[in-house]
Amino acid sequence: MFRYLINRLLGILPVLLLVSVLVFAFVHLLPGDPARLVAGQDATDRDIAAVRAALGLDRPLWEQYVTYVSNILHGDFGISLKTRRAVSEEIGERFFPTFWLTLISMAWATLFGLVIGVSSAVRRGRWQDHGGMLVAVSGISLPSFWLGLLLIDWFSVRLGWFPTSGYGTLAHFVLPSITLGVGVAAVMARFTRSSFIEIAREDYIRTARAKGAFERFVVWKHVLRNALIPIITMVGLQFGFLLGGSIVVETVFAWPGLGRLLVDSVSYRDYPVIQAEILLFSLEFILINLIVDVLYALVNPEIRYR
């Protein structure tokens, strides 16, 4: 297990390296002079020269990259062009709203997806199955921003049950987490159904039935337990989807999280914040995949010893 962990950690190094190069290159890929971008629209040539020297943009690229990476490792992501505050501060404030929103959405979506998936698989070909899968494919096709607006319209504006937007109490979480989770619940339902059906055809399940085990016991003990392995992987992959989805949902609900910060900073061309955000989102995604792989190895010895 230890060796597997080391291998897996070493494996993400090249990906991390490439991601950091890409994010670093980002500012240099932009059309125009980065120093001019940072200095702002109405800066004089002298201002721009000063900015260039201050940011070290006059030094060779590789040196800039090394400085960039070492700054990041010291927690220094630069200064926001919009608010003139440290990017790390801006991001720090907005981390937890997004974190909790993602976690709550993931929790209910996984639970719901599992229940729909299993009930579809158990009643395969019957109306529960067709109904469940039709709901699931609709959930995948639903534009989250539309669903969010519909929910605001019905439950906030008309019924007044939940706040229309903002962050603070538990009630603020209800509509955004429903909006964010629907797509994931749908994907989980479809995936659970197919892996459940696949496992149910294995010989050892037939053996369990043949030896006279109760059907409910077979389903919960044998089938679901084995189907859980691919499902764990899927949960990990869906986290990435949620991180992306939060960008849109936070815009709908004016949620003070990382997603809305990213959208705002792209509109404002606040490059240091964009860079830091993309780096952070990718890091989270890589980290989640790592955790999933480790969990996967924990439940499936075959992988550990390969």
Partner: peptide, 18 residues
């Protein structure tokens, strides 16, 4: 691997930002 390391819409936003 690297392209998949970014969630889809994030990659798209990065490209639109450029």
């Amino acid at each position: 691997d690297v392209l998949l390391a970014f969630p889809g819409i994030l990659l798209a936003i990065g490209i639109v930002a450029i």
